[in-house]
Design a protein around this nucleic acid. Structure first.
Lengths: 343, 343
DNA sequence: TGTTAGCACTCAGGGGCGTCGAGTGCTAAC
DNA sequence: GTTAGCACTCGACGCCCCTGAGTGCTAACA
């Protein structure tokens, strides 16, 4: 592929990303200074189509990039778009605003990303159960119930209402908390060793109280895991993309966005790869083979924390999405550090 | 308005709600056993149009109900639709599942409502700041920060990370908590009397600590209030309504659904009215004058807790929406009672 | 040999037009 | 008061044609 072909390909991709209309040779000749006539560009485009970088909807009516064309563009031709100062300050301001709970951070990260890219944003939060137990405390609620507050090293703070077995006093529960705190100190939540349970068992003599303790632990673990770990934003923004002009298409993608499990799988597949772009047919899941995903993983002290992603039509501003994700990444790692993850 | 006119009006409204297509005299004659010919029905429809109950898109092409027509239907002609057993068990099962945090309850209520009605559901939760202070506790996080857990009589449990002023120890914070607990006991959060602040002031001698206490209190109050009090569900379901076949309309309403403040105002306007239907042009806000809202308020021991609502096109299954809201109401009041509201 | 101009061809989109079906309104008969 | 009949209206649909944008090919040019 000689240099002129590359420049033509670049021109086609850029114009198509901008206009969402198939691009013709004449348009390129006009808008890009390639120094050759439309006819020559036509020849080049025909070659590029042969090579699989461009596609024809039908003969006549301009070219659009194929997945392979986007891939070549992303890998070699594209220059990363700088975020505008305005965008940066908007983001900076939010992150600096003040100490927040970690859930807010993820939710707002998704919002910011979708706002800037006008596409759907996904944020896969670090799993609470993958972080280390810090402490469990009880607070009295009434004579039947108390509130269990679980904190982990990642800065997760969860509260649950738990019923106290009749006969158990709040002091019993506080004693229970001390035992649990001793036994689970430093354990990763989803890998609590059997030995820890045995130790709890041996230190809590009362059978009913032990059952309650197990209940508290399992309650504390299970819920977040399934429901709130994936944060999603921008289904509204998405509608401004011409690809979603007809409602059927929108319904389709909304349906897919409801399948949280599926989304998690897709994101998890990219875990650990740094900044990565998956384009159109490169996606394993059929339903989004006309979409692209840009993912980035955020780390702290070398430890993998989670993934953030932009999901949109293949005709996406890859450069912008990538630099944005990079930027958010830093913020996110930084915030998570400030909120207390200790790695 | 004689009885036959009423039956014709009823037929038009029912058919239109079902089919979303303007209804003609012939269709009514076929599908409803009125015992008269299409011509007669035509005459009645012409009268109904004169009276303002029906509208013509243009001459020819059937009638659709006007706001006034829907109003008459809702007030007099409609029979409330029973929920199907399946729907009831689905709802019952979820509510029975187990003790939950109150936020989940509201979110899922919105989801259930939108699922059953295929329309947007709104749940205005009881304001945390309208409920009474129960207690504030601190849990140690690290040497710079601690976690404030605020509980109210309504069952709200909120946690916030707060920075401790340098020099302050965790014991200082616990002492602060005792003071605050003493002084604010029983106060409604959004109406903390000046005297309470004075009392805190006098009991906390350290200036910096007092500032920190004020910060904690204001932090605990402000956030929820603004952000999470309104739960929204069913923007996806909404798309299945033929009224939203074109994306522009969808964008319009999504934009409006983002204006949380506006939605709260609309719902608040209905506060205290029990089950209430606002149809089309009866809405004050221009943007939804082609929509209807069904609202219901839920109470406990005579005290008003909040509002739940269905928002959809005027062509809405009013009967179903109303009986559903009634049903959810009971559940909601019940759950809130179980979760600890003490009125 | 690569580049360009010219030309015939293709296709999507939009406007104009006739047809069809659903529906109305009016009138006259029952 | 009710109904049948009929002329009329209007939107939706399909058809046709035209236009504009774009291609592919060929022949001429540097």
């Amino acid at each position: 592929m000689d240099e002129r072909k590359q420049r033509v390909l670049q021109a086609v991709v850029q114009d198509y990303i901008e206009s969402a209309e198939p691009v013709g040779s004449r348009t390129i000749a006009r808008r890009h200074d390639l120094g050759v006539s439309p006819a020559t560009i036509r020849n080049e485009m025909a070659d590029l189509e042969m090579l699989g970088y461009l596609e024809h909807i039908h003969t006549s009516s301009g070219r659009i990039p194929s997945s392979k064309g986007y891939r070549f563009y992303v890998d070699g031709l594209m220059q990363p778009t700088q975020l505008s100062d305005e965008e940066k300050t908007q983001i900076d301001r939010w992150y600096r605003a003040r100490v927040k709970r970690i859930e807010e951070v993820f939710q707002e990260t998704a919002r910011l990303i979708s706002h800037v890219t006008k596409n759907v944003a996904l944020v896969l939060a670090p799993q609470m159960t993958k972080s280390a137990f810090r402490c469990l405390q009880f607070l009295p609620l009434d004579d039947r119930r108390s509130v269990a507050v679980l904190m982990t090293d990642a800065g997760f703070i969860e509260n649950r209402i738990v019923a106290m077995p009749s006969g158990a006093s709040f002091e019993d529960f506080q004693r229970m908390a001390r035992v649990i705190n001793d036994c689970l100190a430093g354990c990763t939540l989803d890998a609590i060793p059997k030995a820890a349970y045995r130790k709890i068992r041996s230190e809590i003599s009362d059978e009913e109280l032990y059952e309650a303790a197990l209940d508290v632990i399992s309650r504390a673990l299970d819920d977040r895991e399934g429901r709130d770990r994936l944060y999603l934003g921008g289904t509204r923004e998405m509608l401004s993309q011409p690809e979603f002009r007809d409602v059927e298409r929108v319904k389709e993608i909304l349906l897919m966005l409801e399948e949280e499990q599926l989304l998690k799988e897709i994101l998890s597949a990219h875990l650990g790869d740094g900044l990565r772009v998956t384009i159109g047919q490169e996606n394993d899941y059929k339903g989004i083979q006309d979409c692209s995903i840009v993912t980035a993983t955020y780390h702290l002290d070398g430890e993998l924390l989670g993934t953030i992603a932009v999901l949109g039509p293949t005709r996406m501003e890859y450069g912008k999405a990538m630099s944005l994700l990079g930027y958010m990444n830093e913020h996110l790692s930084d915030v998570v550090r400030r909120l207390g993850w200790q790695g």
